[in-house]
């Protein structure tokens, strides 16, 4: 199939950037979206043009490195799918596809479709951990965890930190990302001692990074490749509210 691509091109953080139109021919339906871009880049390179920069690594939907807004939807319209796992069979011959980077002030564009997501690391630094130096842990069976708590914690823990939630949120909020970690650790017995301080510190860091506020639109969970549920945000709010008066 043949496609028209409208891709955001931006030389560097200071460049204003613009949409550029490209034609790609002979796209196989079995290609992944990124392989389609590989083909475009191969052609651009040989033609002496700069290839399109985009982040990607594992290409199996788990590292969270890839991510672009495809036709206005983070990771494209296939549900529960990262960009690398999106295949071209979901497009039709003659389609025009618009490709843009994640848009959020705390995710500045580095080049083309590549953005800086280090704000997420800083949110984790603020408290997204359980303090347990190597070698100090008790026997694993000394802390039984009810299966339902373990399963719910796992559901939140599957977050891959790709940033689609922020990209899709009309408010540019990072609540789902932050809430996923607060929920994962807060539901486990091991996470209790730091539960309140963790929620408070992480939420405050999230706000300090310049993300927008949550208005519970649910756009985040709809595009989340791992389907992190929205009630994680309620859990975050509960822990945060509980923490606020005590500290």
């Amino acid at each position: 199939m043949n496609l028209t691509l409208k891709i955001w091109r931006q030389d560097g953080p200071e460049d204003r950037g613009r949409m550029v139109t490209y034609q790609v021919e002979d796209v196989s339906p079995d290609m992944s979206f990124l392989e389609m871009l590989d083909v475009l880049n191969e052609r651009l390179t040989l033609a002496g043009e700069e290839p399109v920069a985009f982040d990607h690594d594992c290409r199996e939907g788990i590292c969270g490195m890839c991510g672009m807004v495809i036709n206005g939807v983070a990771h494209g319209e296939q549900r529960a799918t990262t960009t690398c796992q999106l295949h071209m069979r979901h497009f039709k011959d003659g389609d025009t596809v618009t490709i843009e980077p994640w848009r959020a002030a705390p995710f500045p564009v580095i080049k083309d479709l590549v953005v800086d997501r280090s704000a997420f690391d800083r949110i984790i630094q603020a408290g997204g951990f359980i303090s347990v130096p190597a070698g100090s842990a008790p026997d694993a069976h000394s802390i039984p965890v009810p299966k339902n708590a373990a399963d719910a914690a796992f559901d939140a823990a599957t977050c891959i930190g790709c940033g689609a939630c922020v990209a899709a949120c009309p408010n540019g909020s990072a609540s789902l990302f932050t809430a996923a970690k607060i929920t994962h650790l807060g539901l486990l017995p091991q996470g209790q001692p730091e539960r309140a301080s963790r929620a408070k510190a992480m939420v405050e860091q999230m706000d300090a990074e310049g993300f927008g506020g949550c208005t519970n639109t649910g756009e985040c969970t709809a595009v989340c490749p791992k389907g992190i549920p929205l009630d994680a945000i309620a859990q975050m709010n509960a822990d945060y509210l509980k923490a606020s008066p005590t500290s």
């Binding site: 802390i143 299966k147 373990a150």
Partner: peptide, 17 residues
């Protein structure tokens, strides 16, 4: 032991182990 203490959500049985 280390991973469990860190909060790694390993699969568990109904008894919590």
């Amino acid at each position: 032991d280390q991973a469990v203490a860190q909060g790694v959500p390993f699969a568990r049985e109904y008894g919590g182990l």
